[in-house]
Design a protein around this nucleic acid. Structure first.
Length: 280
DNA sequence: AGCTGTACCTGCAGGC
DNA sequence: TGCCTGCAGGTACAGC
């Protein structure tokens, strides 16, 4: 699912191709996404692309921003004259616009930015740049790995929590950016049972988990994200982390830590994969 | 206050 | 073949 590494991968692509481009027109194919599609967008130039947790923010030169949460199936796909050698994956994207294209941002220099979303969970909001941080999602977002998630805070938040350690890792208000895939993999790497109460972890385990969270996210970034369901980068290409999952989606397969077999259970309604042999 | 369960949405896999 | 059911999951929200 799109988590920190996937959204960061999209952000890097958008930053590369969008910054300096002007939005010349908007084609809204799903009226639910924007009220007045041209307002504040037409004629504005992109000056920066940012990521906060799993959220994306495209800053414009008129003090307005486009804030986006792609949720499960949102995709940003850029097509422009400078892209010749990297065609989008037809299997994952289809011809553009596809039946799942919800917004087409027409840009200068004959470029187009397609926003696709199969399940229509994503949201797109146009608002003043200064107001972005006031959106509930951004306002309540917890510290994120590689930025301001410090070990002492991590320890404190685990100690205070009454829920399963896996649920806590995925709680965006506590920690920003970790979702189901990386929570499963981090716990496997740290040899911790996902059902454990977060507050029951010993100091040594907390440190191990903290390091494991960073390690699996680092791998996700290195492989350009995972392509479960339909994550693609800004050029419509698949990521490769799914070939490197430690536990996620590997039910019935061998654990990489030990001779055990990965088992699938449910925690708080979510598919959870772990090795009962080495994760305690 | 903080947690859990469910809704949102749609394609797809599996069963019959 | 085709219908039906259940499953996938990030967040928002109702309810405990």
């Amino acid at each position: 699912m799109p988590e920190l590494p996937e959204v960061e991968t999209i952000k890097l692509g958008l930053e590369k191709y969008l910054v300096g481009k002007k939005i010349t027109d908007i084609e809204l194919l799903d009226n639910r996404l924007l009220q007045d599609p041209e307002l504040h967008l037409k004629g504005a130039k992109v000056i920066a692309v940012k990521r906060f947790g799993k959220g994306l923010v495209i800053d414009l030169d008129n003090n307005y921003s486009i804030a986006v949460h792609i949720k499960l199936t949102g995709q940003f796909i850029y097509q422009g004259n400078e892209i010749k050698k990297s065609p989008p994956s037809i299997k994952l994207v289809g011809t553009l616009p596809s039946k799942f294209t919800r917004i087409i941002f027409k840009l200068d220099k004959n470029a187009n930015l397609y926003f696709n979303d199969v399940r229509r969970f994503a949201w797109v909001k146009v608002l003043k740049t200064s107001e972005v941080k006031r959106l509930p999602f951004f306002k309540e977002l917890g510290p994120e790995p590689f930025k301001d998630l410090k070990i002492d805070y991590f320890q404190k938040v685990l100690k205070k929590s009454n829920s399963a350690v896996k649920s806590l890792l995925m709680d965006q208000k506590k920690i920003g950016g970790v979702g189901n895939i990386y929570a499963n993999d981090a716990l496997n790497l740290a040899c911790i049972d996902p059902r454990r109460k977060a507050s029951s972890l010993k100091d040594e385990e907390v440190k191990k988990l903290y390091a494991a969270v960073h390690e699996v996210l680092k791998r996700g970034l290195k492989y350009g994200g995972a392509t479960e369901i339909n994550f693609v980068n800004a050029l419509g290409q698949a990521g490769k982390y799914l070939e490197h999952f430690l536990a996620y989606g590997r039910g019935g397969e061998k654990c990489y830590n030990c001779s055990g077999t990965i088992k699938k259970i449910r925690i708080a309604g979510r598919g959870t994969y772990f090795c009962p042999n080495c994760q305690h």
